[in-house]
């Protein structure tokens, strides 16, 4: 899906890396480590955290206290990453995440943001008419459930811990994780059982 980098951009990057390593700001090892953790980041990390929280109350409590700690417990380094907060959905409240100012996104647990998350349309509409946006994603939220739109404007990054769907009793962590998509972790959709 990505286009090849332009030769001049690559040359520019090489010059930057040479300058930064020469001055001792970064090392090749640190860059390789960072590259590896960036490549590993995908919604599967967030899905794993949620599935485990549905099964294990201690994990759930730890993850709500510090999303950063939970990610690191999965063996993923959060060094240099903004702190991660986890927003807990309940029977009375659902969360939905946006960054109206730019595109702050919990990359450690979701990877790169999709194009729509950065679009002017999503960013401007979701604070005004979040229920309409969710309906377009195929999730109708009952009127008596409070919808809390979380505008990620500063130093934290956020992910949603949705409610475990009914009908998943006895499911394994892998089965549960498969229900937790990127859109569910952002909160624009609710987890659904396969039809």
């Amino acid at each position: 899906m990505s286009t090849p980098a332009r030769a001049e951009s690559v040359a520019h990057l090489e010059r930057l890396i040479t300058a930064l390593t020469a001055k001792g700001h970064v090392s090749e090892d640190e860059l390789a480590l960072q590259q590896a953790s960036t490549d590993k980041a995908s919604p599967e990390v967030g899905a794993r955290m949620v599935a485990r929280a549905w099964l294990n109350p201690e994990w759930r409590a730890m993850m709500l206290r510090s999303g950063t700690e939970a990610v690191e417990a999965l063996g993923i380094s959060m060094a240099g990453a903004p702190p991660l907060g986890v927003l807990e959905d309940t029977a009375k409240r659902h969360h939905l995440i946006v960054c109206t100012l730019c595109s702050c996104y919990p990359r450690a647990v979701l990877g790169y943001p999709p194009y729509w998350y950065k679009s002017f349309s999503y960013r401007s509409r979701v604070v005004r008419e979040p229920r309409a946006v969710m309906a377009e994603w195929g999730s109708e939220l009952p009127d008596d459930i409070e919808l809390r739109v979380v505008d990620s404007t500063a130093d934290y990054r956020w992910m949603v811990l949705p409610r475990r769907p009914a009908g998943t009793e006895g499911w394994s962590e892998d089965q549960l994780a498969a229900l937790v998509t990127r859109d569910v972790l952002v909160g624009v959709a609710l987890p659904k059982l396969p039809a």
Binding site: R128, P130, R131, D143, D144, L147, R148, V150, D151, T153
Partner: peptide
């Protein structure tokens, strides 16, 4: 900081909220 959504946007709906990081 939590805000009541209807007070901010005219198309906001009770009991919806906005939750925003403010210095």
């Amino acid at each position: 900081v939590e805000f009541d959504q209807p007070g901010i946007f005219p198309d906001g709906q009770t009991p919806d909220k906005l939750l925003v990081e403010i210095f």
